[in-house]
Design a protein around this nucleic acid. Sequence first.
DNA 1: GAAACGCCTTAGTCTATACTAATAGTGAGA
DNA 2: TCTCACTATTAGTATAGACTAAGGCGTTTC
Lengths: 231, 231
Amino acid sequence: MQPTVRDPNPPLTRSVEDYLKAIYHLSSQGGFAATSDIAAMLEVSPPSVSGMVKRLSEMGLIEHVPYRGVQLTSQGRRAALRMIRRHRILELYLTQHLGYDWGGVHDEAERLEHAVSDELIERMASALGQPQYDPHGDPIPTAAGDIEEAELVSLADAHVGTKLELRQVGTQDTARLRYFAEQGLTPGVLLTVSERQPFNGPTTIALVPSGDPRVVGRELAQLLWCQEIGS
Amino acid sequence: MQPTVRDPNPPLTRSVEDYLKAIYHLSSQGGFAATSDIAAMLEVSPPSVSGMVKRLSEMGLIEHVPYRGVQLTSQGRRAALRMIRRHRILELYLTQHLGYDWGGVHDEAERLEHAVSDELIERMASALGQPQYDPHGDPIPTAAGDIEEAELVSLADAHVGTKLELRQVGTQDTARLRYFAEQGLTPGVLLTVSERQPFNGPTTIALVPSGDPRVVGRELAQLLWCQEIGS
DNA sequence: GAAACGCCTTAGTCTATACTAATAGTGAGA
DNA sequence: TCTCACTATTAGTATAGACTAAGGCGTTTC
């Protein structure tokens, strides 16, 4: 019995894992994840984020530039990808083997991803035939921590006729975000590009599967980052 | 937005669920669960148990008789049985559908039982065909909270030739518990009764599957509560 | 270049849960 | 019956993580 020496490398807590995942998603489009965005994503107050950011920095999982935001270190990125792998494999397993539908899986996976062992995840991955994509078409990181980086195009540059999945909304402006949400333009939505007016004019799209049309001006279209859907 | 009203019926925390399960197991043989036994089972200090006992009483989940121990209220019992159902269904699902062996399932189930939804448990139960027993032969409580109460016999009274599963060790004496553990006589062990000497003499048993023999004097044999294995 | 607004951080508090150290009941044996 | 040893409880502290309220930094605007 030694006199209370702290474990230098304790397992990450549930909260820490959630923060890393959020930071991964928010900073994947290049830059820093902002405190208030993390707070909004995790539904906690900004001061809670500041507190956790301090802890995560001390753990070497993120880099923090005060008043700018945070980025994952390679160690933090590894931990985040591990959670994303878990989440996506769980979603796939639950839909394929236990009859969940797309809508219902997310919350279940969100809770389970913190509790499952690596062994269980690999057993599920085997049962699924080492899948590469989850039910939403997102790539599943490998156990080694590699992930297929999606090539994203802005809606303003997408070719007419292409089928796209909306992946990222490239702004933090509340009014614009709210407008996009009202229009049903949130990450994960599927759409096809119907036409584009000449001279930097607006793009017309059709939502899938409803077929509802939307007309998006160039400035806003440049904020909507999409992935081409191959199939 | 009301001024901070506490949820009168919050979901139970992981810790609370663990305490209830431990108390259920310790008090199932009739009496009270002692503070120190709960502490030993959960590997926490006795003062931690006293603290939690106070909270659980206030929540109406247990009855506490100071310096005697605790018992579950019907509400606490319901919550405990819910956890036991989850645990046993998880163990069974992991062994039958994901290739786990008996040894490996327990820890995995121990973590997952706090994270799964009722819906997932019922889906697993369906996939398993609404099973009644887990891989260790223990009865699975129904979703409604009923459980088949096992009839236990002490080893001293068991008939020669019977196959038994050791279920409960009916003492809190550390030296005896330690001795039983050294002999491999811990709950869950399977054994057959080989012979018994006359005039209240010792019972000879064979451990299953190793076949190792053990000779147990009458006094100790009376402490070993077993369930007959039908099959 | 200063003022104002907005986002970020610090300060201080709360809860759940754990711990150690110290105290108080309880029951067995002298 | 008294004492001793054991077990249980209280007292006080620590940690993770959340919150609100208050203050600081930066950027935009004039």
